[in-house]
């Protein structure tokens, strides 16, 4: 996959790479419920150990783990400070530690799950809904179109921003967002026609 915001997926052969997508998602769900239902020092320590072990087994690179945490670093620091001030250091550790652990476990998921496997899994899960008019192939197609659409939309965003800048309107979000969205709609319609011409609506 060479889409511009590169997926987090790292090819590998670890046990996490081989687990079914559904099992991994279920595991994450269960652990995040555990984190809130059994809030306490032992739970948080357990989750942190599990998360670090998971990262090691899955082969998550240190840089990747750091990047996953960086996005929420400010929020976590603030939350830790607030909880320490309001309820003491131990409580802050319990709450923030559990969140950090879950974040790392989620990184294990994204590192070991490719977009293709995700789409395959979704297509499979939707199979039983076929009788209700759900077309799993169209859903899979929507995923592909979206992934293809991201670099395309970024390129259009760049063009419309340049055009607005050329007219001295760079401080006016309307001047570049309006043509951007209009071009997204126009492109989607042209794509819809092309898909129809390729017989994709007939399947």
């Amino acid at each position: 996959m060479t889409a511009s915001p590169l997926g987090d997926y790292q090819p590998g052969t670890s046990v996490f790479h081989q687990l079914p997508v559904g099992a991994k998602l279920l595991g994450l769900l269960v652990l995040s419920i555990v984190a809130v239902s059994f809030r306490g020092v032992p739970t948080t320590i357990g989750l942190l150990v599990l998360a670090v072990a998971g990262c090691v087994v899955a082969g998550v690179r240190l840089r990747r783990a750091a990047r996953a945490l960086r996005g929420v670093l400010v929020a976590m620091t603030l939350l830790a400070a607030y909880q320490t001030w309001q309820r003491g250091g131990e409580h802050a550790f319990v709450v923030v530690g559990a969140l950090v652990a879950l974040l790392l476990l989620a990184t294990v998921f994204t590192t070991t799950t490719s977009v293709e496997r995700m789409v395959d899994a979704i297509t499979r899960w939707l199979g039983p809904f076929r009788r209700f008019g759900v077309n799993p192939e169209l859903v899979a197609l929507a995923f592909s179109l979206m992934i293809r659409g991201i670099p395309l939309t970024l390129a259009i965003a760049g063009e419309t921003r340049d055009a607005a800048r050329a007219r001295g309107l760079e401080r006016n979000p309307r001047a570049y967002l309006t043509p951007l969205v209009i071009r997204v709609v126009a492109h989607a319609r042209a794509t819809g026609d092309a898909l129809h011409a390729r017989g994709l609506g007939d399947d």
Binding site: L141, R148, H187, T191, A194
Partner: peptide
Amino acid sequence: REVRRRVGFVFTDPSAQLVMP
């Protein structure tokens, strides 16, 4: 459906036609 299998269509803007990554 049968007609679209017999008739191929090429558009002006290929980026609208190419749908996979």
